[in-house]
Amino acid sequence: MDVVSLSSVDLAIAASLLVLLSLLSMLLSLGLERKILFFGGRMTAQLLVIGLVLRFLFADGSLLLVLLMSTVMLLAAGREVQARQKRKIVGLSGYLISISAMFVSSFSVTVLALLVIIRVEPWYTPQYAIPLLGMLLGNTMTGIALAMDRMTDQLYGRRGEVEQRLLLGQTWQEASRDIRSDCMRTGMMPIINAMAAAGLVSLPGMMTGQILGGTPPVEAVKYQILIMFLIAAGTGFGVVSAIWMSGWRLFDERHRLRLDVLDVERA
């Protein structure tokens, strides 16, 4: 089955729905019409650019370019995780924690999947590596950002309790144990819920896309299952390492809670 190629006219029809929506927004004085049009346009430009980049990348297929592209994606994801936090750890260490956690959750899992599971030749074939990495980055980001945000927020809000426990001679690990496990649970819940709902409530986007692209449903489903497993595992490992690293940053070697490493002005 061939894919029905979309013409500019087809996309323009879909875009007219957005224009309609912004008209409605104006009628209801929601004040969103500019945003809808602006971000709709920006999304189009972003995706067109990435389409061109991917076309170039797929044609070239060198390891260097694939690595360069994945590094850019990783850094962008780290920045996004950092931006989603209310009370973030200031300075370079905050970014490093976010980037390292995303590295664990996505980079390592992608390489593992390419080498051990998909076993495509060569392992860095961009048609596999880049979408896989993007999928993992995008989907594990939510959990990691959520867990880190909760960690700093909880330590800030419950500092009296934590310091009381330190005063009773507990180590920082003991004093923050409840908070840390709570944050890890928070970070992992969305993906667990997504697994529960997959196929029943929601048809995952990647599978839907493959089916629209002409892949037989069972093949598409197998890939989706693989992706779900990778996302769940990546989220879990990423969340655990993010919380672990945040803990080391938020407490010092004298087992003191150092909230001065948090940026609270914007909170």
């Binding site: 001679g169 507990q170 180590t171 004298r254 087992h255």
Partner: peptide, 8 residues
């Protein structure tokens, strides 16, 4: 001193 021992 070890900080946890100090605080106890």
């Amino acid at each position: 001193c070890n900080p946890t021992q100090w605080r106890s």
